[in-house]
Amino acid sequence: MNEQNEGAPHIIGPRVYVVILFALLAGTALTVAASFVDLGAWHLTPTLTISWNPVVALAIATSKAVLVVLYFMHVRYSSKLTWLAIVAGIFMFLTLILMTLSDYVSRAWGNW
């Protein structure tokens, strides 16, 4: 039950770090480039429109963050407990945002 000593720690070498570095720099270039292009929008309902630019920007940012977490922060080779901590963090982050938004989104419903 004690989550201790999971064998020899896995050491990620410089080669992987360099690859990740270039991937991150490429991601940065991509996201800047994408912001200068109008990617259009998705008109879901008359009142709800999803424009693609922020979606793409956040998707690229998230994949960059995932790379940092997995490789620079070694989470790929970390214990389940670390994964649990990360998932808990993301979960509570989303809880705060989504539950607060549940108020803001629906505040005007029925008042039009």
Partner: peptide, 22 residues
């Protein structure tokens, strides 16, 4: 405990629908 906080705000003008959920 993290999903209930807005019950302190029922009279403050939050959304009725959201209030129901909370």
């Amino acid at each position: 405990s993290f999903f209930v906080w807005a019950h302190h705000m029922f009279i403050m003008g939050i959304s009725t629908y959201s209030a129901l959920v909370f």
